[in-house]
């Protein structure tokens, strides 16, 4: 079983977000980068399944410039077998999906896994786009993932509940809440091994760019909090009704 896991290289979740160049570009100063949290959980679960069934290779792929290699190495240290970096600035979701579809075609994979969404652009679209480009079935927001007797057994989130779903290989799954609980942390041995694991760099293929970001904005600064005495909850009800007008 060959699995292609798509990882994003994103600002740590505690990052304070700032922009530069008149708010047209993300300010990378002092930003720590991480593997997207959804993909980190996906890798964790894939490793658990691999340990249970054996005979699986996990290739991580990232579309990015050289700066993403420490993030890719971290995935190798956690336990992925090898890695591919597509040399390009990931400008738009379709562009990224097209690159990954190309990698898929070169590699005879049985399964593509992506995170449900990246935490920078929050597009939640790359997985489905890859599936569409490759004419594959897909399972979105997968909340449970297992392979038993060669069959994929998944659970997916639907609006207001969840659903058990069977799907034929090859397919694309996007990992959502519940895929794994705690991300696996690399140990010393993993970090040493990661240095020697293969990381191939491939050139990007052409794809017309259909969307671009012009301008970023930060949310308006909120006014100060109005405190209400704990003994006087009626006052809060009054404020919510008369001042905030939400009751």
């Amino acid at each position: 079983m060959k699995v292609l896991l798509c990882i994003s290289h994103v600002p740590d979740t505690t990052s304070k977000i700032r922009f530069t160049d008149n708010d047209t570009a993300f300010d990378k100063t002092d930003i720590q980068y991480i593997i997207g949290p959804h993909e980190e959980l996906a890798l964790t679960r894939l490793l658990e399944v691999k340990e249970a069934i054996g005979g699986m290779t996990i290739t991580v792929v990232n579309v990015g410039l050289k700066e993403t290699e420490p993030t890719i190495r971290k995935a190798l240290a956690v336990g992925a077998d090898d890695a591919i970096r597509v040399e390009a600035d990931p400008t738009d979701a379709l562009f990224v999906a097209k690159q990954i579809a190309e990698v898929y075609k070169q590699g005879n994979y049985d399964l593509v896994v992506t995170g449900k969404e990246t935490i920078d652009y929050n597009g939640a679209q790359v997985g489905e786009m890859i599936a569409e480009l490759l004419d594959l079935p897909s399972v979105t927001s997968t909340s449970h993932f297992d392979i038993k007797d060669g069959k994929a057994q998944l659970e997916r989130e639907i609006d207001g509940g969840k659903e058990v779903i069977e799907v034929d290989f090859p397919f694309v799954a996007t990992s959502g809440k519940g895929f794994a609980l705690e991300p696996r942390i690399p140990n010393m041995r993993g970090i040493m091994q990661a240095r020697r694991k293969p990381l191939a760099v491939v050139q990007a293929v052409n794809q017309e760019i259909k969307t671009k970001t012009n301008q970023f904005y930060l949310p308006e600064v909120k006014g100060a909090c109005t405190f209400v005495d704990a003994e006087n909850v009626e006052e809060l009800v009054r404020l919510l009704h008369e001042e905030a007008k939400v009751l």
Partner: peptide
């Protein structure tokens, strides 16, 4: 306009 950085910012997207 859409949200970006998981609700920490907003971005204007141009669709061509």
């Amino acid at each position: 306009r859409k949200k970006a950085y998981s609700g920490k910012a907003f971005a204007d997207f141009e669709l061509n």
